[in-house]
Simulated scan of single mutants.
Amino acid sequence: MSNQKRIVVKIGSSLLADSEQLTLRYAFMHGLLSDIAKLKKQGYDVVLMSSGAVALGLNAVGKTPEDAGLLDKQAAAACGQLLLLNAYKQVAHEFGFDIAQILVTVGDMEERRRFINAKNTIERLFENGIMPIVNENDTLTTQELRVGDNDRLAAKVAQMIQADHLVLLTSIDGLYDRPPSDPEARFIERLEDVSEYLSATEGTSVLGSGGMLTKLQAANMAQHAGCSTIIAEGIIDSPLLSVMEGERRHTKCVAKGTPQSAWKVWLTNRLQVAGSLVLKQDAAVALTDEIAPIKHTDIVSIQGNFQKGDILHVYDEEGREIARGLTNFSSEEALVLARYPEASTAELLGYSAVPDVITTKNMVVLEENHLPWEAPTSDRQMVASL
């Protein structure tokens, strides 16, 4: 691991593309890359999370943000990616550094081996002084397999490279305790518990796919990985250094002390739910008192069609999420084990195995200030209630 300071900067589509003409805002890009060049000279490794490909490609496919369907957006991303990266490359060369592109999917972030492969690629680029520009692969991902917003994806990358700071540049100057249009809205400069302000986070921009809610979710993910988050307006002149040096107001979500191991941080911070378990209430209470394996006899219900090695979200019978962990069995296998608790794994599955669905080394009990996922509802796919 490098001793370099590290920062992940996320830029939304509305900052890079004019909302009416759907053309690139070169003035903003120059200000951004000028600041990044200065940060690199100060000793920072920088990853840029950049939206914008879809917006910039819509003219080519004859669509607007309002009437573009999924296939239109995939085609637009294929067109716009060339425009976006060509512009980044030209401007970066003006400031004396080079760039590389990394396109990722949910699977690249959620599957451990692919996550490590992406991390290793970024590390090698850093070694050569090259700035990675990361984005979701909008050309190939379907609606069901998308992260859906670059805010949380940026937080996953910050976790991946053990960044010191995550900067989310947006169209407003930070977080308010209610919609900024309200004359009584109060600006929040420092944030420790994001759950206090979730009710004030509705709305997205015309071009963007994430609003303030996804930024707070990202900040919560980052703070548990030991990374502070800055939410600020993406102005043209010195959009990064002016907030890094405290010259203009912004919202800062502070890191939560020393993070857990990289393994447990990866286990905890998820982008999608592969599946979930509901535990008997006494087993859930015991788990929160002292971490212990989740046994097949503890399970009340199983949700989702998951595979061995997926990360499951664990709930008590009252719907509170209490843990996340890597499953030793597929949903079909776990269902068989839970339905026939007296039989051995060899009898039920055809091979011998310890009947712990999740072991302690592959599980994290959630801290009180970690944002939970809502428990699955009855209209979602339910594999079985036992």
Rank of each mutant, 00 (worst) to 15 (best):
S2H: 02
R178M: 12
S199N: 09
T64I: 08
P376S: 02
D177H: 04
M212R: 00
L83V: 12
T377N: 11
H165D: 15
T268R: 14
I99L: 12
T64N: 09
S51V: 02
N86L: 01
Q381E: 13
H165N: 06
V9M: 02
S171M: 02
N117P: 00
F329N: 08
L337D: 06
A384Y: 05
D379L: 04
S19W: 08
G12P: 06
I294L: 10
V106D: 14
E66W: 02
E367Y: 00
M29F: 13
I236L: 10
Y351V: 04
G304S: 01
Q381N: 11
K38R: 11
V354A: 14
S301Y: 01
D151I: 01
R124P: 03
Q81L: 08
E290D: 08
S34L: 06
G107N: 14
E110N: 15
A338I: 03
F95E: 15
E318W: 15
R6W: 09
A222D: 03
L175Y: 01
K361E: 15
A200H: 04
R113M: 12
E20P: 01
G350T: 05
F97C: 13
V157D: 10
D298I: 07
D45M: 12
A100M: 00
T345F: 11
D193A: 14
Y340R: 09
R146L: 04
A100S: 01
A163F: 02
E342C: 05
L337C: 00
A17I: 00
E342N: 06
I188K: 00
Q101H: 10
V254A: 06
I122H: 12
I294K: 05
L271R: 04
G174P: 00
V61A: 09
I299H: 05
I102C: 10
T345A: 14
D310N: 12
